[in-house]
Computed example of a mutant assay.
Amino acid sequence: MDRSISGAHWSNPSRLKTRHLVLLLHLDEQGSVLRAAEAARMTQPAASKLLAEMEALLGVPLFDRHARGVQPTWYGQVLIRRARSALLEIGRAQEEIAALRDGRMGQASIGTVVNPGTNLVPRAVAEIKSRHPDILVRIEMDYSRPLVARLLDGQLDLVVGRIMDPDGGLDLEFEPLADEPHSVVVRHGHPLATQKTVRHADLAAYGWILPPPDSVLRARLETMFLERGMQGPRNVVETSSLPVTTNLLRVSDLLTALPVEAVAPYVQAKQLAVLPLELGVGMESFGIIRRRGHLLSPAAQKMLEALRTMARQLYARGGPR
């Protein structure tokens, strides 16, 4: 069915104003013109008029109306994603201008997966703070997919992770840094840690701490079990939190799969141990990801340079892989 607005023609979308975009996000969040109007501090007729203006300017319906409220169309979803990014950029521009006006460098927001989040990113941040203590650094640790989504939305300046999906790939630049093999990690003194050799079959008797089902690592662990004719773990704790994982390991006989570098301090302190087993589970190379053609703020540019410098020291000479 033709979903275009009857009789509408493409107008100049540059006539969209900030108030249009703000209302658009409220409509998406609230799912109701009335509630969106209240959130935007305007009347419902004024909100309906602004929505009609947007649809007339673009020549497409942005929301479907139904008895329960409004829901964005495909066109609306595209504009909502770009509007959120645009408003975030405007907000950041105001912060950067204020910081530069006051003689400060501003801020940098980084997303990272676990392994570089335990060595590369902390070292790079320490380097930045030693040289530029006025830079505000924000760090988020998560899996690659949500981090890259936040990068594309403009919520993050840089991500140290992987591009897992082709969607949005053309909008991204990737600098590979290192691969990431995983090992089986247990508490110090675990029964398996006292064995000179460990086989995959020995793992079956123990419970596991696993990442959520939608993660790539979870799928690869399950594939590893199947390829070796083993039943996947039934005694399972699911978490994406490294602190929760390490503390669970220390007080139980549970197993987990992690990069050795992620738990190196615990191993050195004899709180955790790495089993002498080639698990055969790894992830693609992680690297520095940023938006293609996007001009980084002075603080984010400094952060990028520090990440590159620390990566050369960690990985170029056969360091953690």
Rank of each mutant, 00 (worst) to 15 (best):
V198K: 06
D253P: 02
R228Q: 05
Q195N: 01
E227F: 05
E180A: 14
L152S: 10
G229N: 03
Q268K: 12
A264E: 07
N247Y: 05
L255P: 03
I163G: 12
L242N: 13
K196S: 08
V267R: 02
V236C: 09
N247F: 06
R234G: 15
M230L: 15
D179Y: 10
L192V: 06
V244L: 11
G161D: 08
R292Y: 04
L172S: 09
V281C: 11
L279R: 00
L258T: 02
T197H: 10
H294I: 01
R228E: 04
N235T: 14
V216K: 08
T246R: 08
L254C: 07
L249T: 01
P176G: 13
R291Y: 09
V267C: 02
T245C: 03
R199S: 15
A264R: 08
L210W: 07
M283R: 10
L192D: 07
F225C: 06
D202I: 12
L152I: 11
L226A: 15
T194H: 06
H182F: 01
F225D: 03
L152D: 14
Q271L: 14
Y206V: 12
P211S: 12
L277T: 00
D179T: 12
L275D: 01
P212Q: 00
H200Y: 13
R250G: 05
R199H: 13
P191T: 05
V185Y: 00
D214E: 10
T194G: 00
V184C: 02
A264P: 00
I289W: 15
L249C: 02
L279I: 00
V198A: 11
A264C: 01
T245I: 01
L255N: 01
G189C: 04
T245P: 04
T194L: 09
P212S: 05
R291H: 11
G287L: 14
A269E: 11
R290H: 06
R250E: 09
E261S: 12
G169H: 09
I163C: 12
G293E: 07
D202S: 13
D157R: 14
R199P: 01
A204R: 14
R218S: 14
G287W: 11
L277S: 01
E261L: 06
A257K: 06
E238N: 13
H182M: 01
Y266Q: 13
Y266L: 11
R234F: 08
Y206L: 11
M164K: 05
T223A: 15
G232D: 06
R250D: 05
M224Q: 15
G293S: 06
V237E: 09
Y266K: 05
A201V: 11
R250W: 04
D157F: 09
D165P: 02
V185F: 02
P259D: 02
I289R: 15
S183E: 02
L156Y: 08
R162V: 13
L258A: 03
V251A: 10
P166H: 04
